[in-house]
Computed example of a mutant assay.
Amino acid sequence: MGSIPKVLATDEALALIERLKNRYGPLLFHQSGGCCDGSSPMCYPRGEFLIGDHDVLLGEIGSVPFYMSAAQYEYWKHTQLIIDVVKGRGGMFSLEGPEGVRFLTRSRVFTDEEYRLLKDNGELPL
């Protein structure tokens, strides 16, 4: 999507995404920023979660689109998201729940140079 990915995934997350794609078909991720489970990345079968006009496509992980609500993106736009997997139960509607693991968002702040490049390329709001 851009010169500097806004979202990445660990090897463990990519392996889980592949298992879920094999089981459920095409997927998508959404992170809303709501309370409780809403602030976690949620994995859904593509077509079973309606993307809204105010959702932002950050990129793809494992060939799966990753969206975030615009309000949440405003908070996270200065960071690169790293999607990982940890043991434990996550969101009850997210597909990884029965696996005994959950997706987790980690992040790192873009360097000044990366942030400037993203802005110059029109990939971030000014």
Rank of each mutant, 00 (worst) to 15 (best):
T105R: 15
G97C: 11
L118P: 04
F49Y: 15
S69Y: 06
L81W: 08
G100F: 04
L50P: 03
F93L: 04
C35Y: 11
V109E: 14
G33D: 11
L104K: 15
S107N: 12
G2P: 04
F49C: 04
H78M: 11
F103H: 09
E12N: 12
E114H: 03
D84C: 05
L50E: 15
A15S: 13
F93N: 09
G33I: 02
I61M: 05
Q80R: 15
Q72N: 05
E123L: 08
L57N: 12
S107H: 12
L95W: 01
Q31E: 07
E74T: 07
P26Y: 08
M92S: 05
F93V: 01
G34A: 13
L27N: 06
Y44L: 02
V56G: 07
V7C: 06
H30Q: 05
R116M: 01
S3H: 14
K77L: 03
L95I: 02
D112C: 00
S107M: 12
G2M: 05
S94R: 08
T79D: 12
G90Y: 07
S69G: 09
V56S: 10
G34Q: 15
L28S: 09
L8M: 15
A9E: 02
E74V: 00
V85P: 03
C36N: 13
E99A: 06
D84R: 08
L117D: 04
D84K: 03
E114F: 04
E113V: 00
V101A: 12
E60H: 14
P45E: 14
D53A: 14
G100K: 10
M1H: 14
P98G: 05
A13D: 04
Y44N: 02
H30L: 06
Y44C: 00
M68F: 09
S40G: 03
V56H: 14
G34T: 08
L50G: 07
E114A: 07
F103L: 09
G47P: 05
G2A: 15
A15R: 14
Q80P: 05
K21A: 07
L126Y: 14
L57M: 08
F49E: 13
S39V: 02
G88V: 01
E74Y: 12
E96S: 04
D37Q: 13
T10S: 15
L118K: 06
S107K: 11
S40R: 15
V86D: 08
D37W: 11
I83M: 06
V85K: 11
L118I: 04
D53Q: 13
S69I: 00
D55R: 10
N22L: 09
F103M: 07
N22W: 06
G62K: 09
R46T: 00
F29M: 10
H78P: 00
